[in-house]
Design a protein around this nucleic acid. Structure first.
Lengths: 385, 385
DNA sequence: CTGAAAGCGCTTACAG
DNA sequence: CTGAAAGCGCTTACAG
């Protein structure tokens, strides 16, 4: 996955900005500008220069018309005489006026923006999902805020509440924490929240999920079909919903085939390379090695791929989540692929349906996964070979 | 790269939302709510229920204090008697009040948000850059809008102007178009814009760039050092700044080594697989094949990697941009890596310096690239072998 | 310590 | 066809 440290690289040479909080409101005002602030409105319109922004009032004054007439012209409303419109447009052009949408939206009640809260936008899964959400939002005329929680619950909460404080029209959340009751006041007062990838806890809300158990079941069954009986499972932390579901799929596939599961074959924990490497070595290099490995997410698969060459064995390998270049590895990597774009599309679509007035009970939409056989999981175990 | 089509996958099953534009403002108001809107303020505070949002006025009325006192308590200002504060806090808790930051920011003048305009957030380069920008913004207390232009100039312009209309405090742009003079009024009225990855045209602005020419020069020199004389260059469209710079680096390295360049070795064009495949086949499979290939960006490298096994030759390969799993290919892929996170950090830092009042002339910051030798570019050409 | 008034830049509802 | 008034939910500047 993307390196999340290493950001202190060349860019760190750039001096950090001074942290004067109300930066622009204070510092950018040139002396003349500050003076202009104190002048009456009409004078100020004439003095418009660097740093200022003409308002509808300025345009009205310059054109010698009423504020409402400017509003009509700007918004293309009918019922303005050509002469008036021409004068207003001339003033608009001269002053370089552009409507302040933030002000407009304050009055209107909506903000025409939604927010997407992810684990890490730099992760391929998140970024693919993000693009899909953005596309739906764009079709609805909404702009998109994005924020990364870093899988850190307090940060998720902080960001979510900051978005709500801006009064975004709605929220799409890939939950990091395990208690989302803090969002109850927000949803109660009309801000819809849709959860993706994992369900929320402590709040009844829409959830768009991958078929984690089904996908894992299909993957493990695939290994079994190719003759494997001793199959290792390397997963994420067991308290993570997706992780638990995939383990469930593994167990179900084994049970369905009437195969016993040795609990030592199951290694759940963090996704850091060292932890996964240790698990791989133990499962593959021990005295009673497994003949196949199911790695339950992209980071674990990558870590396992790096470790495997240094273990004695060469087990079949099947990963959850597709990887770029997976087809160019030797052997090419067989995966159970999620569809992050479909998750994002479904989540954003659901959100806009809620915004359009849908009051039906919370839904749970499950997006299917897809087994892509490429070679790494199709070789039989040594004994059968 | 991430599949940008295929979004019609399983998610497409989800019914599309109806496109009623002013959705929430109209539809979500329950009948009681609509009635509440018509009631005088104080009554409304008492009637607060689903869909409404209590305001400071509501809190003031409920607590029986002045509006300003509520403001003081909400913002933690000093000079409020404990008794008053207690009454206000009780009202806040009872009504579930949360300050509307959009309203606050309208009065304040800033929006505490910046926007990032990318080619495609789903691309690993963009998403790594995005995360870095987000981190800097977060440290400055700013939220981040993101938008994808899809390398489509009109869309870039539309998005950029939409962000400016929201009065974002500043803009970070990966330019898609070749004329950014449309941003002149925005920068003139005080919205700073920083360009990343490519410089802007038609406007004097900060630009944060990779050392494209230097990186290409280093990569091609590396190939030359390993005995290659006939080196092919497969690049992006020549009008793209990064593409032209990398080609320049290629030519400079060849010239520095006193090597002639056959113009037929240079294949610039789109990054789609078919076009790259054709170029690879022609360069490698022809009668006078090159012995090494320099692929000038990540998409081209991936396309070439897919094609190469199906050509007769097995040239040395060196790509611009690193790829996940590059080290697990056979042979492992040698690359000139960019540092998208450093680009993002430098861009965002520069933006906040501008916001803090920096009025120095536009800068150009160049982020170094890094050659990572892994094997694919270190084998000598057949003749020397 | 407290709060009424004016204003941020727009739109809504209403009167000419 | 045109515009003055009131208001969106806050903060600023000012008076008690």
């Amino acid at each position: 996955m993307t390196d999340r440290n290493g950001r202190a690289g060349p860019g760190a040479d750039t001096p950090r900005p001074t942290r004067s909080r109300p930066a622009r409101a204070v510092d950018t005002a040139a002396p003349e500008q500050a003076a202009a602030e104190r002048r009456p409105r009409k004078l100020r319109a004439m003095t418009s220069r660097h740093g200022s922004r003409p308002t509808m009032n300025d345009v009205a004054a310059a054109a010698g018309v009423g504020l409402k007439t400017v509003s009509r012209v700007v918004n293309g409303e009918s019922g303005v005489s050509p002469a008036m419109a021409a004068r207003v447009n001339a003033a608009i052009a001269e002053l370089g006026f552009r409507r302040n949408d933030s002000a407009r939206l304050l009055r209107t009640g909506r903000t025409a923006s939604i927010a997407l809260l992810l684990e890490d936008i730099a992760d391929p899964f998140s970024s693919a999902l993000s693009r899909a959400v953005e596309d739906v939002a764009a079709a609805e005329g909404c702009l998109l805020f994005t924020g990364s929680s870093g899988e850190h619950p307090p940060r998720e909460r902080e960001l979510a509440l900051a978005f709500c404080a801006r009064r975004v029209d709605g929220l799409v959340v890939v939950p990091a924490g395990d208690d989302h009751s803090y969002l109850l006041p927000e949803t109660a007062s009309g801000t819809p929240v849709v959860f993706v990838d994992r369900p929320a806890t402590g709040i009844a809300a829409d959830a768009i999920l991958s078929d984690n158990a089904g996908g894992a079941r299909e993957g493990v069954s695939h290994l079994i079909r190719h003759g494997h009986r001793r199959i290792g499972f390397i997963g994420d932390l067991p308290q993570i919903h997706t992780s638990a579901e995939r383990l469930r799929g593994y167990r179900e596939a084994m049970a369905a085939a009437g195969l016993p599961v040795d609990e030592r074959w199951i290694a759940c924990g963090t996704t850091d390379r060292a932890r996964v490497a240790e698990a791989v070595t133990r499962l593959v290099g021990g005295p009673e090695p497994v003949t196949a490995l199911f790695t339950a997410n992209n980071r674990i698969t990558v870590a396992a791929l790096h470790r495997l060459p240094r273990t004695g064995g060469r087990p079949a390998l099947l990963g959850f989540d597709d990887l770029e270049l997976a087809d160019l590895l030797t052997p090419a990597l067989t995966v159970v692929a999620q569809d992050p774009a479909a998750l994002g599309t479904a989540a954003a679509s659901t959100l806009f349906e809620r915004l359009a007035g849908d009051r039906t009970p919370p839904r749970r939409i499950v997006i299917p996964t897809r087994l892509i056989a490429r070679g790494s999981a199709e070789s039989p175990p040594p004994a059968v070979r």
